[in-house]
Amino acid sequence: MGQSEIRAIDACLGHTGQDGWAAPFLDLVVATGAVQVMVFAYDADHAACLLSRNFRAQALGGALAESYLDGWYRQDPLYARVLALAPGALSVVTGGAPGPEDYRLRFFERPGLAGKTAVLAAGARLRLVLNLYWEVLPRDEDALLPLLGRLALLHFEARLSEAPPALAVLSERERAVCLGMLAGKKAEEIADDLGVAASSVVTYRRRAYDKLGISSRGALFAICRR
């Protein structure tokens, strides 16, 4: 582990539960060589995407996350495994593309992904799966992987609030704009609520979409719905 990774870990710990956490975390993911990262939270009848980023085609990550949450997560063999974890437990699952043939076609073969490595982590309130996707499967397990799972769990448990878990990665203003949109408000109404210009609402919305890996209001509703 090099100095840049150590600095990124320190930055993640320093921003746990706060704005500014995502950037150093994504730097650590890039250091593993993964081409896509997704973090999902699960309960007995629901899945939520907390973080989605494809480093080759940003819109692709959001599209895959939206499709996965549309019932496909139930075909993911890791779904039952992460729910069965005891609090504090962590497991790294390596290998190729999992699941039935139609699942592998949709989430791996068509997007050009060889497979994934998953880190399953259970906390006091959340059950998370951190997925790192590869164009070429790595030969050896990266020592960063368990640490990435712990960092994600610490951060997202610290950010639990009344807002949908999918919005935990956003800044306070970005989250407020998204919550306004989810409530059916127009940009002008949200601007009045926040005491900012309508153009600032557009900026916060764009930043939120970038972080969430989505590009439309429909996608926002999809990743936040319960």
Rank of each mutant, 00 (worst) to 15 (best):
F107Y: 03
I6Q: 15
L50G: 00
A121S: 13
E189C: 08
Y79F: 14
L128S: 04
Q36K: 08
R127I: 03
I214C: 03
V37T: 02
C224T: 09
W134M: 01
F221E: 15
E157G: 01
A44C: 07
K185C: 12
A122E: 06
E157I: 00
G218F: 10
A219Y: 06
L85M: 12
L128G: 01
G71C: 06
A208T: 03
G2F: 09
P87A: 04
N131M: 11
G184H: 08
L147Y: 04
G123Y: 11
L137N: 01
R139Y: 07
E135S: 14
G61F: 00
S215D: 15
L83D: 05
N131G: 09
L26S: 02
R225A: 12
L85V: 05
P100D: 05
A219L: 09
G180W: 04
R110A: 07
Y79Q: 12
R127N: 08
A124N: 11
A23K: 14
P98M: 10
R7Y: 11
Y133T: 01
S67F: 03
A152D: 12
E162Y: 12
R56D: 07
A34F: 00
A197R: 13
W72S: 05
R207W: 09
F40D: 00
L69W: 11
R127M: 08
R139V: 10
K116T: 06
Y133M: 01
Y103T: 06
T94A: 10
R207K: 13
E5L: 08
E189P: 08
D70Q: 15
I214D: 01
L130S: 08
G149K: 03
P100H: 08
K116M: 10
D27T: 12
A80H: 15
S52M: 00
H155T: 07
V30R: 15
P87Q: 10
Y79W: 14
R110G: 03
Q36G: 00
A57T: 15
D102Y: 12
V202K: 13
A168P: 03
A63V: 04
R104N: 13
E101H: 14
D19K: 10
L160R: 12
K211D: 05
R106W: 11
V30K: 15
P138A: 02
Q3N: 11
Q36M: 11
R110V: 07
G20V: 01
Y79R: 13
Y204T: 06
